[in-house]
Each structure stands twice: as C-alpha cells, then as structure tokens.
Design a protein around this nucleic acid. Structure first.
Lengths: 196, 196
DNA sequence: GTCTATAAGATGATAGAC
DNA sequence: GTCTATCATCTTATAGAC
C-alpha cells in the first residue's frame, strides 16, 4: 500500500481514538516504519494531514449514502441504514466518529479542517431531513414532524451515542439510541402513543 | 478567590473548549498570574487536576438535578429543565460539556478520570429513565416507551447537540434537539401520530 | 521518497530556596 | 504557597544528503 495511504489510515485511527492533539507524527512514523521527516514530505503540516482525512471520510460517507439511496426500499430502511453507518464505525475497533473528534476542539483545530467537518455534519442533517419528507409523503412517518429538527436530532444523537459507546465499551448504547430515534418518527396506525 | 479554585475554573474552561490534551499548565499559569510550579503544588499531575474538575462538575450537576426534583411540577417540566442544563453550559461562552470532552480521548485519559466520567453519564441516563417512569405513571408520557432506552437517548442526543452547537456556533442546534426529544416521549391524546 | 541532522520551542514534572 | 532553576523528553517542522 502507498505510504501516504498508510499515513492517512493510521492518522485517522488516532483521531478517532484519542483526538487531534493527543498523537504526533512520531507515533505515526513508528507504526509505518519511517521517520517523521518522511511524513512531512507527504503532509507538510498536521493540518494538511487532517484535511486529507476529512476529505476521505466525506467521500466514503457520500458513497455509503448513495448506496443506501440506491438500494433501500423505504424511508425507514434508509434511516436505519444511515444509523448503521455509525454502528459500523464503532465496530472497527471501538472508534469514535472522526468528524465528531475534530468538531470538539474548535479553537485548537485549523479553520480549514473545521469547515470540512461542518459540511459533513450539515450533509447528514440535510439527508435525514429529506428522507423524513419522503417518509411523510409515503405515510411511513408522522406527518407533524419538522424535518430539519429531526435531521439535527438524528446526527446529534448518533454522535453522542458513539461517545457513550466508547466510554462504556458498550455497543448497546448505540443500538438503543437508534431504536428510539426510529420509533420517534414512525407513524402509529393505532394511535399507540395515546394516553390512558 | 482561592488559587486552587481559580486553577480549577480555568482548567475546566480549557477542557470544555479545547480538550484535555490541548492545554498546558503553562496556559493556566499565565492566566492565573503564577508559575507552573505553583500549579503542581495544588495539583501534582494533570490527572489530579482533571479529577478535581470531574468531581466539581458532578457535584454541581447533582445539585442542579436535586433542585429540579424539588421544584418541577411535572415529569415533562423536569425533562425540559434537565435539557436546559446543557443549554446553560453552552451559553457560558460556547462551551462543550466537560464530561463529553473527557469521554472522548479514552486511551489518552487516566482511568480514574474516565471512571468519574462514566458515573456522571450513567447518573444522567438513570435519572431520565426514572423521570420517564414517573411521566408514564401520570399519563404524561407514552406508555410503550422503554425508560432505559429513552434515558440513553436523551443524554447521547444532548451531548451530541452540544458538539453541533459548538461546530456551528448555533444555539438552535441544541434547542431543536430538545424539542424533538420532548416530543418523542409526549403522549398524544388525539393520536396525532396516526398515519393517513 | 526516505534518510540524518537539527532547530526552536513546548511539555509535565521535580528540587530546593524564600 | 510561591518562586527560580532545571530536567528529560516530546513537538512540529526544515535543510540538505542519498
């Protein structure tokens, strides 16, 4: 595998596990089996490396979402599979969402990186919102929901669930949240939510 | 104000804004107007400082929740005010939840600190779960909800919403999530969630 | 592309004077 | 409690040889 790809791989793993500030070029160099100067050849600054990671994650996410759009048969299935992307990330060795890690340290993260992270976040919110509209049109979802609000809630809840899963090393922290989120948008024919 | 309290204040601010690894004793020393050696006198290691911060946050949160329990008149109001605690934290100058910041860098955060963070997280989940049971008993909330699942979702979603609010410098990212969360547990007399 | 060598500064932490 | 002085190490990054 190309060295630069290896560097991105390992850098991404560090960002997901400890965050941007808790690893160094030295850590990566050791694992790749090269010197730090060689990393600087591929990515002059740490911000450059972070940018490359952000771009790769965004591309991978877009592709995954395109795949969902192309193959899922209902809005409900689309939402479930979107949530499943986070579960899959966690499953790759107890990892947090890299974008969430980069979204946290604002002041200490280069603005170009933060901008890419915001784009990722907003894309997810917008896609969920559109999927909610689709589900409302088909009668799958509650008609009284505000799509934008739901979009924001889905992304926020999944990102937070990842943090919880990491803190407790517990996959069900994510699964429970997915269940409640899906339930919260699903229309109930019987009016099951009715009190008394 | 006592020096140690000042150190905790500023250290907590740094943890909330940039995370455990992105600030140093030097940063704190400059702002307090003392030398790093003096900080080591109060908190020998950075882990000691983090522990003191975790304990203070947990105490403050317990007190805030006790106040809610003592004065809120309905389960719905209790949940709203609990969510309001996060909104208040964000309002204190664009700050993330300190426990969320510490929950992320797992490998690179001392285990004693992580343990305190988990306790904080679980306390929140359990309190929400109990409040959901109360609301179900009074008919305020949907009877078919699993309290544990809802507890986990509330905490995860609020923590994630804090991250989003920070990334976008946008308070409505938190407010929207609160609205959908409350809506998701509220019983509907009319069966408003009914499809078609 | 990768290396050695090096820079200039930051980091967490300690010893001992006042 | 706070200081000066010091430590060993790590950090990001560059220059120039191979």
């Amino acid at each position: 595998m190309a060295t630069s790809a290896q560097i991105i791989d390992i850098g991404q793993e560090y960002i997901q596990k400890v965050g941007f500030h808790a690893f160094s070029y030295r850590d990566i160099a050791k694992r790749v089996g090269i010197r730090t100067a060689s990393i600087h050849y591929h990515f002059p600054t740490k911000a450059d490396l972070a940018m490359a990671i952000v771009e790769r994650v965004r591309e991978a996410t877009s592709a995954a979402i395109a795949d969902i759009d192309a193959s899922a048969r209902s809005a409900g299935e689309r939402l479930r599979r979107y949530c499943g992307l986070f579960l899959r990330t966690w499953g790759q060795g107890d990892r947090l969402c890299p974008m969430c890690m980069l979204a946290m340290g604002q002041d200490a993260i280069p603005e170009e990186v933060r901008s890419g992270v915001r784009d990722f976040w907003q894309s997810g919110e917008s896609w969920v919102a559109q999927t909610v509209r689709d589900g409302q049109a088909s009668g799958e979802f509650r008609p009284d929901l505000d799509p934008r609000t739901v979009g924001r809630t889905f992304v926020a809840a999944m990102e937070g669930a990842m943090v919880a899963a990491r803190a407790f090393t517990d996959r069900t922290r994510i699964e429970d949240v997915i269940d409640h989120l899906i339930d919260s948008v699903t229309a109930r024919r019987t009016g099951g939510a009715t009190a008394v």
